[in-house]
């Protein structure tokens, strides 16, 4: 029962998705569209599981004093704060007690974790958390400059949600991405040191393609540059095309075979039984 039903479900829906491709009839399209929507919605429910896992692992790291454990408070506070921004908006121009509330709420979170992690001094942590919790409640009740909003995605448009997006997410994202320039250089160096036929071929092809960009051949430019650009174009259009085609056919077959194995129940590794 525990193992069979999932396998039957996979086979049933898998076969349906294969055969609906050949059935243009409206009713087949109708079910197809439903199923696609359903998978997306189930995925959103799964996000709750993900957040729970993130919370648990962070607290676990704090508990077991893993390397860099203290920073996990930052993860949890960042998580809580951003969620909070996603559901609140200002009612007017004034900020009121918005930021004091945010600080108190984060303190409640940190103190509660402390209380659950530390055996000694639990009473103190809980007491302090209680005090800040009361402060939060008082602010919610009396401060009208901001509020929780459940109208269509207002939180996503709120000033602080956008500010965090623009000034935390974007800069780190873009910088991580730009680090690739350095990493690609060190990777090239690594390839350069590896002395075998494969690495040499790879590096040579890479060099030819890279050199087409830079007409830094001085007075020789008119003689070398066109040759380089022609060779690199040839590399991109001929061997590249051939190898890509071979890989794509192979990958296509691999995907088709794996999907078929999954649907027929031959391959059950994804359910933990292979």
């Amino acid at each position: 029962m525990k193992r069979q039903i999932p396998v039957i479900l996979v086979g049933m829906f898998g076969l349906f998705m294969i055969f609906q491709y050949f059935v243009p009839h409206e009713s087949s399209e109708w079910v197809y569209e439903f199923l696609l929507d359903w998978t997306i919605i189930i995925g959103i429910f799964a996000m709750a599981l993900g957040l729970w896992s993130l919370y648990r692992v962070s607290v676990e790291k704090i508990k077991t004093r893993k390397p860099a454990w203290g920073y996990n408070y930052l993860t949890l506070c960042g998580l809580f704060t951003m969620m909070f921004f996603g559901f609140t908006t200002q009612n007017g121009e004034a900020w009121g007690w918005f930021f004091p509330f945010l600080v108190s709420a984060n303190l409640v979170l940190v103190l509660m974790i402390q209380a659950s992690v530390n055996k000694g001094g639990r009473g103190l942590f809980l007491g302090l958390a209680g005090v800040f919790l009361v402060a939060c409640v008082v602010i919610i009740v009396f401060d009208n400059t901001w509020g929780f909003h459940f109208e269509t995605a207002q939180g996503l448009q709120s000033t602080m949600f956008r500010a965090f997006f623009d000034h935390i997410l974007i800069p780190i994202f873009a910088t991580m991405f730009s680090l690739l320039a350095f990493f690609i250089a060190s990777a090239a160096y690594r390839a350069f040191r590896a002395r075998n036929v494969m690495a040499t071929l790879l590096l040579l092809a890479a060099l030819i393609v890279m050199l087409r960009f830079h007409p830094f051949y001085g007075p020789l430019t008119p003689y070398i540059a066109p040759f380089m650009s022609k060779t690199s174009n040839w590399l991109m259009n001929v061997p590249n095309l051939a190898a890509q085609r071979a890989i794509i056919i192979g990958v296509g077959l691999g995907i088709v075979a794996t999907a078929l194995k999954v649907i027929l129940g031959i391959e059950r590794g994804y359910m933990g039984k292979g």
């Binding site: 993130l54 704060t81 951003m82 997410l169």
Partner: peptide, 16 residues
Amino acid sequence: HLFVGVSAAFWMCMGF
């Protein structure tokens, strides 16, 4: 650590 926390919440809010 900040990036991880904020981005996870960002996706949660967007998804919701």
